[in-house]
């Protein structure tokens, strides 16, 4: 569904991504792994148009995204959960949700559907997002992205710093979205979490997509984890 081919790009003169090719299919979870600084976040930001592609294409259902202004990319149905959540922290929970809904003109039906997934947010609609707990903030970041009814969902280390029960809740959400046909790209550093969710695993190394393999072919002892992630 989302086809990245030969994508290069970075910040100013510095090329971070070099010739990345990756396809994320609907109803599948594509995990991206790699060491700190490998370019995982940069890749997601390039998809969102926040980092300019110097070469290569990003296609979603036939539309080329790489030349669009950043604010038009999400309108094609890409929901983004940035690393570190990046909530609008002075805004309330309800206002964060509203921004998500406005992106593609969704209304109360979508809002209800999303809040049904995260009942704890429904109880805190008037609370400022910045005052939520870490887990609640991550839920809100995901809820905000789901308000786009996305065809593609980009998640950048959503389990970072969360306790096991919260990680399980996020995994349940990802697995549920998978059944609805969403193409998910998930940046994740934990081997167990990756193996329990992924259909496909891509390993980034210094901005190069070193290897892509089916998750079924991997075990916790696979050498790729040692080589590319160092665990």
């Amino acid at each position: 569904m989302l086809e990245i081919s030969d994508l290069s790009g970075g910040y100013g003169a510095v090329e971070v991504l070099r010739g990345v090719t990756l396809t994320a299919r609907g109803g599948e979870v594509t995990c991206v792994m790699g060491r700190n600084g490998a370019g995982k976040t940069t890749m997601l930001r390039a998809i969102m148009g926040q980092v300019r592609a110097s070469a290569g294409t990003i296609r979603l259902k036939g539309t080329e995204l790489q030349s669009l202004p950043a604010h038009e990319v999400p309108r094609h149905g890409i929901g983004y959960v940035p690393q570190g959540r990046r909530l609008f922290s002075d805004l309330t929970v309800a206002e964060n949700i509203t921004i998500g809904l406005m992106t593609r003109n969704h209304g109360a039906a979508t809002r209800d559907k999303v809040l049904d997934l995260f009942p704890r947010l429904r109880e805190r609609l008037d609370q400022r997002a910045g005052t939520l707990s870490g887990g609640e903030q991550q839920m809100l970041a995901i809820a905000r992205a789901l308000c786009l009814e996305p065809a593609v969902l980009l998640l950048d280390e959503p389990t970072e710093g969360l306790q096991p029960s919260m990680i399980a809740a996020i995994r349940d959400t990802v697995m549920l979205l998978k059944t609805t046909g969403v193409a998910t790209i998930l940046v994740e550093q934990r081997v167990d979490a990756v193996l329990s969710m992924a259909d496909q695993v891509a390993f980034l190394q210094n901005g190069i997509l070193a290897e892509t393999c089916a998750a079924a072919a991997l075990t916790p002892a696979s050498p790729q984890f040692q080589t590319y992630v160092g665990v």
Partner: peptide
């Protein structure tokens, strides 16, 4: 006004939600 406050909070993320900064 909401769009302005969201842009104030985080302009990159505002773009990721369709806001023409």
């Amino acid at each position: 006004g909401l769009v302005m406050r969201a842009t104030q909070a985080d302009r990159d993320t505002a773009r990721a939600f369709g806001i023409n900064v």
